Amino acid sequence: MDKFVIRTPREAYNPKPKYNRKFYKQAKIESLQGVVVIEDLERAEVLLKRNDVSPGKKVKTLKTLLQKRPPKETLIKTNIGKTVHKLCKHENEAIASTANEVYKSWKEHILSKVNRPKLEVACDLKTQNFKLSARRMIRDAMKRETDSSGENSFGEERYKTKENGKRKRELDVDINIHKKSCKEKKNDSSEKIHKSSKINEDTLDALAEYIERELFQETKRLINNSYKRTVRKLVFSLKHQDELRNSVVNSTKSVDRLIKDFLQS
């Protein structure tokens, strides 16, 4: 059988090349730039302050700090900001240059936070409608009822008095003159009332919005039972208590004090 078998030289074993796969590791919360561990910062602050620590370890510590973006409050609390700032003038050039990089990156981060505009996140539609209705009820409760003064009952004398025709004619003339003067006064007063009503409505709208916002903030930005109950009590009290309404409208009572009183009651 061997003469029928064709033997060929064996080739060297060449395994198939593996695909270049990237193996990803799961990121941890501590690996994020904005997440810092207070204990790590305190440890780094001690290492950077001590004189018996080698320059290489200090540079390594500063490089780890360079990857973090701690907030301003944390820098003040741990005193790490002052320590890094002092190391910018260190005798060792490596330590000074790395400390300068850390200080500049932290400073840019803090300044970007300060100059960044605040984001206004809109609530859901149900919450927005509830807030708008609460503002409307508070505004209506703060409006003072204006008594519309009608015409004087001057014409009743015409039917009560029984005098001669001359006296009646004089009375008719006096009534007409009185009506004209009332109309003129009414027109002048209506213009003044219209202008003042616009100003009052604008101020009341702003005040009602301010009261509702502070109440919403005090109830942890939730439309809960405390928020609803406080709105009802506030509206009822503003409607029926003249002294309270006048003090709120005239700003003799602060909004913070008003909300705290109603939340505690």
Rank of each mutant, 00 (worst) to 15 (best):
N20S: 10
E191V: 13
V235N: 04
I193A: 08
R169S: 10
T78L: 05
D174R: 12
P15S: 09
K253C: 04
R245L: 09
K60M: 07
S196P: 00
K185C: 03
E170A: 06
Q26N: 08
C123K: 13
K192M: 11
I95N: 01
I95E: 00
N250E: 14
F130T: 14
N246V: 10
E170M: 02
K233C: 08
I175R: 01
R232G: 10
K25I: 09
N51Q: 11
Y227P: 00
L207Q: 08
T83R: 13
R158C: 06
S97V: 14
K186W: 09
L204S: 14
G155E: 04
G165H: 05
R139K: 15
F154M: 08
Y24N: 07
K260M: 12
C88N: 12
K86A: 04
Y19K: 02
I211W: 06
L125M: 11
D202Y: 09
L47S: 07
D188I: 09
E45M: 12
I29W: 13
C123I: 04
S112I: 02
E39R: 13
N100V: 12
E156C: 06
L204V: 05
A44F: 11
R232K: 11
R221P: 00
E201Q: 13
H109E: 04
D174M: 11
G150T: 06
N14F: 03
S149L: 06
L215F: 02
V121P: 00
F262S: 00
A44K: 01
I211F: 03
K186D: 05
R43N: 12
P55C: 13
V235D: 15
Y210E: 15
F154N: 05
E120Y: 09
K113R: 11
K143T: 09
V231L: 05
N20F: 15
T230E: 09
Q241V: 14
P17L: 07
L41E: 02
K60F: 15
K49C: 07
E42D: 08
E214K: 14
T146Y: 14
